[in-house]
Design a protein around this nucleic acid. Sequence first.
DNA 1: CTGCTGACTAAGCGCTTGCTCAGCATGCTG
DNA 2: CAGCATGCTGAGCAAGCGCTTAGTCAGCAG
Lengths: 209, 209
Amino acid sequence: MTSTPIAELWPTLPGGADTRPEAAYRLLRAAVESFAERGFHATTTRDIATGAGMSPAALYIHYPSKAALLAEISRAGHAAALALVRAAAAGEGDPVARMRRLVEDFTAWHARARTVGRVVNYELHALPEDDYAAVAALRLDIEREVTALIEAGRADGLFEVAEVRTAARAVTSLGIDVSRWYTDRSSETPEELGRRYGDLVLRMLGAGR
Amino acid sequence: MTSTPIAELWPTLPGGADTRPEAAYRLLRAAVESFAERGFHATTTRDIATGAGMSPAALYIHYPSKAALLAEISRAGHAAALALVRAAAAGEGDPVARMRRLVEDFTAWHARARTVGRVVNYELHALPEDDYAAVAALRLDIEREVTALIEAGRADGLFEVAEVRTAARAVTSLGIDVSRWYTDRSSETPEELGRRYGDLVLRMLGAGR
DNA sequence: CTGCTGACTAAGCGCTTGCTCAGCATGCTG
DNA sequence: CAGCATGCTGAGCAAGCGCTTAGTCAGCAG
């Protein structure tokens, strides 16, 4: 079993415009595994190429640089996380139900896609400036979604929080850190962990009972 | 103002046995800053030596390798964190009061010593095997202290938690992740953040009211 | 003065790195 | 069939890496 459902991150485009050769996906997959395990700088282009079953030179047919691979992984990973947060925040039910789903999905994603999650959250500093800016914007959007949902819940008298920004930080922080410590040997499935974290967060936000 | 109270981590030994020359401390300080900012592998021995105001060769008079510097930083950092957790867990008051202090101190430390915290928490994979084992033992001890304190609170009917291990993970996780996102520009002081996180965690653990 | 030590530097060695380039097989198109 | 694009390889380059070496120099004991 692959530890990362990486295929989810690069779906074939509906318009059929996704003509990228399969070899490019193999490179992405190999890069994610290497970056997650050893970090960007400790990973060599030879590692990635070998992992994708080709010679080092072939990498440069599909990507202009090692950093471009990191940038694509980082963009796609952040986009996926933001999409999932948006779907939960704009979903059905009151803010309590939506927050529960947000934490469940965000946490489970960081457990399931932990290799991608590690690259996305801990290799940011290696991104070229432009790519970093794009990714920072996505990160800000995620934080804003969470903040807005907490505020909505507070307005409805469902949450009781002293500092919304601090609470939002804590919520995203818990999810992100999952990608650091979660392993194959963890006793909880990503979904179980999501449910438990959902309970903990709702209590943290003072969602009564 | 230095962002890291690094001096706290390498106190002069009471027996006066600490005869290590001042240059060694300059190297440690420069290494912490570089490792925290760029990561272990992206940091060169020239970076560290220059930061300490000497030539690359001088580094090897005080440390046998670049990795030895990382190992010393990691050991000292983990020892400091464990000491702080132990002091809180064995302190005065009921489990609620002790947990509050634990979270306050653990969180504030990760904000104040965020550069050391980054090295300690995110550069583990670069440690030589032996050093990694030593540090992993310290990390386990920290987790055990937190778990034991939650269990004590539950036995006294003060906490209400479904899964102690998951709750303990969440508590340490929140603190650790602070070193990732906290910056000089953060609006909260480390102590304020500690107090707020203390409130959030106690609610998360169901410490009623 | 001599002889020695500890802290340091200039220079550079051997190796690995990210990346390039000439060339080759394959398959599509006219 | 030729002509050409695509996807790839083997060989290798320039730069930069961790670390070593040979040697300098201040300080101090005798």
